[in-house]
Design a protein around this nucleic acid. Sequence first.
DNA 1: AGATGTGAAAGTTTTCACAGCC
DNA 2: GGCTGTGAAAACTTTCACATCT
Lengths: 230, 230
Amino acid sequence: MDRARRPTADGDRRRGEHDKRRPATGMDRASVASVTRLSSYYRILEEFERDSLATTSSTTLARRAGVTPAQVRKDLSFFGNFGRRGLGYNVSLLRAQIGKILGLGHRWSVALLGAGNLGHALFAYKEFEKQGFYIEHVFDADPSKVGKSWAGVRIRDIGELQSTHAHPIHIAILAVPVSAAQTVVARAITAGIRAILNFTPAQLDVPDGVIVRNVDLAIAMESLSFALVK
Amino acid sequence: MDRARRPTADGDRRRGEHDKRRPATGMDRASVASVTRLSSYYRILEEFERDSLATTSSTTLARRAGVTPAQVRKDLSFFGNFGRRGLGYNVSLLRAQIGKILGLGHRWSVALLGAGNLGHALFAYKEFEKQGFYIEHVFDADPSKVGKSWAGVRIRDIGELQSTHAHPIHIAILAVPVSAAQTVVARAITAGIRAILNFTPAQLDVPDGVIVRNVDLAIAMESLSFALVK
DNA sequence: AGATGTGAAAGTTTTCACAGCC
DNA sequence: GGCTGTGAAAACTTTCACATCT
């Protein structure tokens, strides 16, 4: 099978791999780093909106996000012209536009794979629902967990992942032991899931068209110890 | 106070900010991305060692890590010449050398700030101790939690963070509510902590010389929804 | 032959600097 | 004067390709 070739260790992925020769839009030109920054602008704008600020500028936004004003403008320019020269940006309009870019208008159905400690913490994590990510399915392999419920969601056997679901599952959160990671991911893909947030240290092997973002906690820690020791 | 200027939203940081005009060593030339990859090579080498492989090559390592062989060699070249031309790398030697680069020889003393759901999951996360990160302190502001113990570690009031400690705390894991993030971080810094793994969505304001790595779970999720919707 | 280590080339991202608009 | 949007320059990262060693 033809498999994705080159995800960076921390979950980035180069672009331009399977261009269909459409004219390049902002979608294609913006890097993962740029999209990550959009998320942080979005958070800041939510806050500005709560504080009833009507307008803002790339300078203000940049200071809060810890980047340069030029970077803010460049990031936004990949997707359109959202500001007005001389005036800046309308806070709620810009927030809405970024939200649309990030796909935050949708209600995303998420499956949690692995109901251990980490799985439970992620299940309880409030920020996900705020942004439209609903963990509506929980799967685990441990018979002592299967059948129990978390906040009304029944934990089902991981084998049931591939059974037909009334509604499609958009995203899987992978929080199983590293030894089970590849097997479980293969099942998720068979079940039609095309986006995976991977909390295991495993380097997942997925077919083209499936998106993986790695959150490796130990690696993040090691980048700190590297900085401390250097 | 003079403050750190430009961490990228996902925790990267440009180099070359306060060069002391020493000749550039690998430590300075290697990017955060490169160090992240070193961590993943380290994991793979541990596995090779368990499988009793004596030697390996940049090609083998690269395939497993999902990068190119040239990248493996370049990453390593920032820190030294660990291989032998024509022969490849000695698995255990290379693992040891990378471990040293990453500061994995040490026993790092870690304080967990915030004993909520996420904090508990991180406390229980096995990979940390395997790499030398020991969560020896847990702090929380909630009086109903203070005084309880997790696996022999007593949860203390966050106010005690600044009391003198017999042994220094090297790293703080920040898992408090976002509203408390900046206050708690200021205390951690007063207590002498210079490295922070930040699980809150807050953009932390820290003095120069303090290292922050952000793990923003909602942002990781948003980068998936962006890819799904585009 | 087979592999590393590394300058140089290619590619990507960030910053600069300024035209254009309010 | 203030601020955006953007080509061009600078900086940085990855890949190439080959000298060098076993």
